[in-house]
Write a protein that binds this DNA or RNA. Structure first.
Lengths: 207, 207
DNA sequence: ACGAGATTGTACCAATCGGTAAAGTAATTA
DNA sequence: TAATTACTTTACCGATTGGTACAATCTCGT
């Protein structure tokens, strides 16, 4: 029998996947055990508060990844235009062109929203705020930037829903392309793809 | 004790509500019984195939309502501009400015998608097709109309997600306003609100 | 008023749910 | 090496799950 010792952090990525695919209530401890390779004992050793604590851990990890890979560049990068392009690239990769569901969005729509309201709100507020900051640094009006940032974040969520409903990743990619046209300011010398973070060419974030 | 005889059609609206609020798996027979006021016996008398048949009945009713109230005017109304404005009004009312979840979208995101794939696909394909038809009749290019229709339907779904995530109906209403600006062609003599179907001023569709 | 069919309440089922308890095994530290 | 901690296995719990069976009740055409 393969008996190995695991640590908490190894469980986060499989947990994220199983919650994305089955939702909070749909992800039973049996499914969670299968996805993580951990028995109930180990699961409750790492997450004494059960499923709720597992989701909170996953949300924390997701928030951290977006903070580092998306929000922070949008807020701090000197090349705001490039940061926005990089955001769109990262979004397309992270959500696998709509094949991967947004856990935060899914939780917001389900009746579990109230349980994780703070984390859900924080995720989207940070995204809109960071994008608005970059749009303003592009030279746009503050109010217009707010509206545009909200529209963009909302369009990404809608693109996930519609591309899954139609089972067609092209829907998601068209939505990203449209956003690129509306958010990125044309520049003859650039192809409008992210030039900042080429290290994000890896196969995609696990969490 | 109040003992009354019900009929199948009376159960559809409460069923729609309970599935919207709890999802397919989250809506237990206990919750369904409470919402409809029907016992298991009655429920399985009207819907012999259980929850799956209940959801199919609800999806059928929803599809019919949208066909009559939204798609058909978009496709057939001579005043395409007015029909689009009416669509936005109906959308805001139907989804209660984002306070009400879209059951079809929620099913598309959950792992129940495959079970209802055909109905889900039909709902969104009809919507995009009908809206494209109206946009073309406004005098727009066919390809551009396709893209724009897709963007609009997708934005509505995203607006539901984001306004629920932020618990702020104003997000949904701003999204509808933005769509009005992009879809409705300005006309000095009109305020760009739907002028066709003023009978839809009722408190909102039940299903 | 009566019979037929439609509707309902109740008891019941195996399976699964989230979660607990505790004894056992591995890794770490002293 | 001994003791301590970290992790895992297994068995178990009451509650709830979706679904079935069936007898009792109601509605309605005659």
């Amino acid at each position: 029998m393969a008996r190995m010792v695991a640590e908490r952090s190894d469980a986060i990525a499989p947990l994220a996947e199983v919650f994305r695919e089955h939702g909070y209530e749909g992800a039973s401890l049996a499914l969670i055990g299968k996805a993580t390779g951990l028995g109930k004992g180990s699961l409750y050793h790492f997450f004494p508060n059960g499923k709720e604590e597992m989701v909170r851990a996953v949300l924390g990890e997701i928030g951290q990844w977006f903070e580092d890979a998306v929000y922070s560049p949008l807020r701090n990068e000197s090349d705001a235009n490039g940061a926005i392009g990089a955001m769109l690239d990262a979004t397309d990769q992270y959500f696998r062109s709509g094949r991967r569901v947004c856990l935060v969005g899914a939780l917001a729509v389900a009746n579990t929203r109230d349980l994780f309201a703070q984390a859900i709100r924080g995720y989207f507020v940070s995204w809109v705020d960071a994008l608005q900051s970059a749009l303003i640094r592009q030279g746009r009006d503050a109010d217009q930037s707010r509206i545009l940032a909200e529209e963009a974040v909302l369009a990404i969520q809608g693109a996930i829903v519609l591309s899954r409903a139609l089972d067609d990743p092209a829907v998601f990619q068209r939505a990203i392309d449209q956003l690129r046209g509306r958010l990125v300011i044309e520049n003859d010398a650039s192809n409008n793809r992210g030039t900042i973070d080429d290290s994000s060419q890896n196969e995609g974030c696990l969490v």
